[in-house]
Design a protein around this nucleic acid. Structure first.
Lengths: 185, 185
DNA sequence: CGCCTATATATGCATCGTCCTATATGATAT
DNA sequence: ATATCATATAGGACGATGCATATATAGGCG
């Protein structure tokens, strides 16, 4: 259901097509949410049936026709209701940590390589996060008010803080392996 | 597929039943993985067909019969192969952050209440993390080697670091709201 | 006697999510 | 000429997940 509200949230700023929404997801909220193209279309179809959004068909000469979606009053009400609810606290799920949990089975050299790989990935992700702020104007210029931008930057701030914590963790593990502080089997 | 390897990892320490595994998941790795009971049983059934595990039926007088699962050689090989692979970096998905992203729609008081609720939840989770170390002996005493414990504590360390970062973030947001630093619509 | 809890396994159902593929158009590159 | 890319929408197949429910045994409580 989260995708529903993410879509409603963006459509509440401005009408968009499924194709637009896919691009917006991939650029503005990609640090905490991803959306598959086919699922966006399917969700929009369902939400149209449910009366949460309206479709406006726009014919184009040079390109395929667009279906632009608008929030209805019901959709807007559903969004505001949901925003008022306590946040949907989900269970943490981290597949990589399953590897960490059991990787005592491997020799230290392999473990070290694994953590150095992870640390490099995290440094790259942090670099990518630095580039996000510039993208909201390009891909969702309708999110223009200082207040909207503020809350958007809050999510990015959390992403950066979390990723830094992860990186510090990985670096501390690397240190411990190099110093021979990992117990032997 | 992650659940497969988590199950293989535990069965590689010791044979367990589905019921045992459910309890172990809920106590030892609950800070980064949860498993539904029905899915554990279904996964064990599939893995038996695939030859990754073997079943041993144990009749009990006072209680229903148990089906205790053992890792096969193929299962052990699959586990070690997977542990050697680069960690399966998944997309971050955070439903609560969708609320944060769009909650500029709400008045500051509601936003403040939301973040105080989140901060309280995180403090509770941090308290719960403190109690995890004692539980591994009770619910999975077979994970006894210092090396295994070390990697297990690494996952807990990351959970604590991440949760602390989240809490600091929430507290900084609360400060900003109280100081009137959030832009008005 | 009925009810609840713990142990133990299993199925049904619906949703969510991802991957792959199909369809259609126009512009640009080789 | 052909290939590929960007735009634009959509369906099939499948796996993962979660919730509810069914079945069975034994013990404890009121």
């Amino acid at each position: 259901m989260s995708l529903d509200y993410a879509i409603l949230g963006f459509l509440n700023y401005h009408p968009y097509s499924g194709y637009d929404l896919k691009k917006i997801f991939d650029t503005t909220v990609q640090h905490f949410w991803s959306a598959d193209q086919s699922q966006i279309y399917r969700t929009l179809a369902r939400m149209t049936e449910q009366g949460l959004v309206d479709v406006e068909k726009i014919a184009q000469d040079d390109r395929p026709d667009r279906k632009v979606y608008h929030v209805t009053e019901a959709g807007r009400a559903a969004l505001l209701d949901w925003l008022s609810e306590p946040p949907p606290m989900q269970a943490n799920r981290s597949a990589p940590l399953i590897q960490v949990f059991f990787c005592g089975q491997l020799p230290d050299d392999d473990v070290l390589a694994k953590f150095e790989y992870v640390a490099d990935l995290m440094r790259e992700i942090l670099k990518r996060y630095d580039q996000i702020p510039g993208q909201i104007d390009i891909h969702a210029p309708e999110i223009a008010s200082p207040r909207e931008r503020y809350f958007w930057l809050l999510t990015l701030d959390l992403g950066i803080r979390t990723m830094r914590a992860n990186l510090e963790w990985a670096e501390s593990v690397i240190e411990q392996i190099k110093n021979g502080q990992v117990p032997k089997a």
